[in-house]
Amino acid sequence: MTDSDSSDAGDRTTGKRLDVVALLDRYGIVIVIAVLGLLIYASQPDVFFTWRNITNILNQNSVHAILAIGMFMVILTAGIDLSVGSVLALSMMCLAVLSASMPWPVTLVIGPLVGSVAGFVNGVGITKLKMPHPFIMTLGMLFAARGLANIVSGGVPYSGLPDPVRFLGSARIPLGEWGGGMQSLPVVVVFVVALYIGFHIVFEHTVFGRRLYSIGGNPQAARVSGIDVDRHLIIVYTICGFMAGLAGLVMAGRTNSGFPNAGMGIELEAIAAVIIGGASFFGGRGTLIGVFGGVLVMGLINNGLNLNNVSVFYQQVLIGIIIVVAVSVDVFRRNVSTRK
């Protein structure tokens, strides 16, 4: 329709303000990461910006990074998955227990498989049992999967896994000698980067990914457009469970064991990374690149405070503050952009 001249001019000014907001929205996390990096670099110039420390940060946060992909996917559809920590433990225990009696290829796939089944159960429960909110179903799974993790292992840790199973979590690619020692790249870092690139393409460039945004934005619109919302949600929770299983495999490989208390509370850290990364809790908004930024912010805070010998308790306080600040910035941004 034809805009009158006056409304055109009005649109143009809001357009400009929106551009700044949109830029901050998209790249704000990069600025936060740069500032954090500079602060830590200033406090520990000899240690921070070394290959070893940077790959350590990525390596230590790989489990969070993997979980955050699945968590972002469910939050994008205006859902939540509280069970990923327990599902991680269940997957880890299943593979650790089975590694003693089964050939390694079975052990390798059993973790992600168990995770997928748990996620599928979540998805079916949420859609077919018509739970009032995914919170309820996944809260149930949080308890049930943790209990099962203890049942399959008799409540005790198992250690000693075959090398091929440990590969993903612990192998390193040697890169040669520099900076006063042999340098290497953890395999899991390459794996995580590949996962993020792959899922970025899924979210931005596939019909499935774009439909997830529409389901999060307006499920009713998606439904009347002929999109099978329930089917999409079941797939989403299954993928989230698969990611938890994958994270269990990585953690098992790194620790060369399975322990039933693994990943306690880690679901909240994954949610924190997604929220800090700019995804909306109400669904439909956020990018996977932002989520990766959110994981890095949490990793950098952890690393910076460790390097400066600050107690872990302060880290928790800081993460708490950052979550609240990140979301209030988001609310402020939303208010600015909806003011017409």
Binding site: R210, V224, G284
Partner: peptide, 19 residues
């Protein structure tokens, strides 16, 4: 109630379900 997804752009809304 329009049945549009506000978080998505105009083109994506026009082709929602028929991408």
């Amino acid at each position: 109630d329009l049945a549009l997804a506000e978080n998505m752009n105009i083109a994506e809304n026009i082709f929602l379900g028929t991408e």
